[in-house]
């Protein structure tokens, strides 16, 4: 692995937790990046913010609970988890409804944030 030049990646989660398997793939990727001690941030936007909701019960779908997995992320050396403020507002979700603390980004901050990282990986 190239460690000479350390890159900062941003993993963007845009998909609802159970509508397709993409959300799960994104979570797995975030966990892998954490396990490999990469410098990365996690951003939830669009329907992706639904992954962060508390009290998800996925048992009847026979799938793993996305919220539960995400709540373990602070165990990794992740500097922060970010969410698009407008997306949360569109779904009527407050910060108190989330499984982990997030930093909210408004439209202007979001553009700068996307611009600042070396790689954007969008799932």
């Amino acid at each position: 692995m190239n460690t000479a030049e350390r890159k900062r990646s941003l993993v963007v989660m845009r998909h609802s937790p159970y509508g397709s398997s993409l959300a799960r793939a994104g979570i797995d990727l975030a966990l892998a990046m954490g396990a490999f001690e990469q410098d990365f941030d996690l951003l939830f936007m669009g329907s992706g913010v639904l992954q962060l909701l508390k009290d998800q019960d996925s048992r009847q779908l026979g799938s793993k609970n996305a919220g539960k997995t995400l709540s373990s992320l602070p165990l990794y050396e992740l500097s922060a988890v970010y969410a698009d403020a407008a997306s949360l507002q569109a779904f009527g979700i407050g910060e108190e409804d989330l499984v982990l603390p997030v930093k909210l980004l408004d439209e202007t901050q979001l553009a700068a944030f996307l611009n600042d990282c070396d790689h954007v990986i969008s799932c």
Partner: peptide, 21 residues
Amino acid sequence: SGLGQLVDAAASADRLLTFGG
């Protein structure tokens, strides 16, 4: 192979491009 191969590729590439999704 595992997701480590993607992490590794992202670390060494100048650009990482995502298609689909």
